[in-house]
């Protein structure tokens, strides 16, 4: 006996995959909706800028602080710069950024599409011979895939700068050693793999947001449920996929 929850899970995976591949197929078929894409790039990316900058900076700062306290016990403070760079580019930059954007943009996508579903606006699109997946879902997923890596570049940068400030200016680590260990331990592939992760996380959070919104039912309560589900499911999926991506890439 597999049970209904398992079957529902499999069905959910199937429907989300169909929605994703259908949205991607529409990306290569006219009409190309550049204006909608630009709007979503702005919504997912530009409007997440400051929240990503602030979380990125404080993440880098706390990593510098924690590693300094730990490494000081065996006089290895000089390694703080390298460890900071590795943790920020490989893990914390992509993951923290993705979680923040899932909370901000993923939930908003689910709420917007969910409201459109329960007020029949999605049916209205279809009735006017416009494919709702192409019009609503494709630009949002593309925006997630494009903007997350850019946001992560910013998060990596401010995270490192924040950590540098704490390590060098506040805790007195030698600036030259801090930078030298960074260059010694970190490779370009660390940054690039982090950006690949970011693109996958962007895909996940927008696809889940679109899926939960697109298939919303049950009025205002359903929209609320879809919004919560979008954040919870995409956060879990980001953390779980992070493990497997790390296992494959590093």
């Amino acid at each position: 006996m597999l049970g209904r929850p398992f079957l529902a899970l499999v069905e959910g995976f199937g429907r989300i995959a169909v929605l994703f591949f259908s949205a991607m197929a529409w990306a290569f078929r006219p009409p190309f909706r550049l204006r909608l894409l630009v709007k979503q790039l702005e919504f997912v990316g530009v409007r997440s800028f400051w929240v990503v900058v602030i979380t990125g900076a404080f993440t880098g700062m706390v990593i510098a602080l924690q590693t300094y306290y730990g490494f000081r016990m065996f006089s290895a403070e000089s390694l703080v710069g390298g460890i900071l760079a590795l943790s920020v580019t490989r893990e914390l930059g992509p993951v923290i950024t993705a979680l923040v954007v899932a909370g901000r943009a993923g939930s908003a996508i689910a709420a917007e599409l969910g409201t459109m579903r329960v007020t029949q606006q999605i049916d209205a699109l279809a009735s006017m011979a416009v494919d709702p997946v192409q019009y609503l879902v494709t630009p949002r997923i593309l925006a997630g895939i494009v903007m997350l890596p850019l946001l992560v570049v910013m998060a990596d940068f401010v995270g490192y700068v924040g950590g540098y400030f704490v390590g060098v200016k506040l805790l007195g680590i030698n600036s030259g050693m801090f930078m030298a260990k960074t260059l010694e331990l970190m490779e370009m592939s660390d940054l690039m793999n982090g950006l690949v992760k970011a693109a996958v996380f962007g895909l996940i959070l927008t696809t889940v947001g679109c899926y939960k919104g697109y298939y919303t039912s049950g009025g205002a309560e359903g929209v609320g449920r879809a919004t919560t589900d979008a954040v919870v499911i995409s956060s879990l999926a980001i953390l779980i996929s992070d493990y497997f991506l790390t296992a494959v890439m590093f």
Partner: peptide, 23 residues
Amino acid sequence: NNRQLKEIRKSFGMLFQDAALFD
């Protein structure tokens, strides 16, 4: 199929229960 449906829908107009205007 979807393409044929899209074509034929151009000859339809539909007024939804709550109008379903794009807000």
